[in-house]
Amino acid sequence: MGGRFGVLSTNQCHPVISMTEVFARRPRVGLFVTCLVDLMRPSVGFAAVRLLEAAGCEVVVPEGQTCCGQPAYNGGDAENARKIAMLTMRAFDGFDYVVAPSGSCAAMLKVHYPRLLADDKQHASAARAFAERVHELCAFLIDVCGLEQVPGSFAGRVTYHDGCSGLRELKVREQPRRLLAIVPGLELCEMSDTDACCGFGGLFAMKFPAISNAMVTKKCANAASAKPDLLLSGEMGCLLNVAGKLSRQGAEIECRHIAEVLAGEMTAPAIACSNDGQRR
């Protein structure tokens, strides 16, 4: 059992653990699935559940969740973003932690909900308290659970793409790399400009397709020069963009969400690949 929990009411990891404590009360984690995982790649959600369970958590998927509200917020519609924030906070009331397999959705919940509700006397403090319980999946597994073993294994070269929001708003950089370092057989080979945006940017890819294409083309070239078998990221939007471009280019690099490799949930074909691993 990899999970190590201390005082559950705070986000601190207790240095001395007692297994009885862990089993006495497993932390209840609400999984924020994210709209893209829900719609495009449910296997990522199941991989996240498996990892969280391996870390000793009880996982619940509240039905009341939809999307984190980024399209409204970044589209300039703060009013609707606020309403969606309230809905999400209600859906995840009462959990010890809220975990999302996405840096940008987690950043929306953790960084932007408190900003959106800062002037709302009634809900500002609730938003701040909610934000404290929110974590990106990799950051949660390392920072809170202190996970030291993962169920998955992978024999091959892997490169990791940092999603911008997770990297810059939540400072998630080392955690996914530490997790990849404990995957048996996996060799991490970094590409250049790992911190450069892939050009997804939510609706940006639809509003400025040509610029987005120039950016993702650069990203794919950087990825290719690292000569990986597999490109991983913690961000479904980036993955759809990069995998879609690699697929169009006929490249052989496969793309998966990092949770799939960590959890050993690799039965589903890679993104934009069919069962035999071929792109067609």
Binding site: V33, V37, D38, L39, M40, R41, P42, S43, V44, G45, F46, V61, E63, A205, M206, K207, P209, A210, S212, N213, V216, L240, N241, A243, G244, K245, S247, R248, A268, P269, I271, A272, C273, S274, R279, R280
Partner: peptide, 27 residues
């Protein structure tokens, strides 16, 4: 496993493939 052309999402498919969803939502 992928969609090469989709008229109402041509901004996307003009430049890159759209990965097919696995089918059925996570929920």
């Amino acid at each position: 496993a992928r969609i090469r052309r989709l008229p109402f999402l041509h901004a996307w498919t003009d430049y890159r493939d759209l990965a097919a969803p696995q089918g059925g939502t996570f929920q």
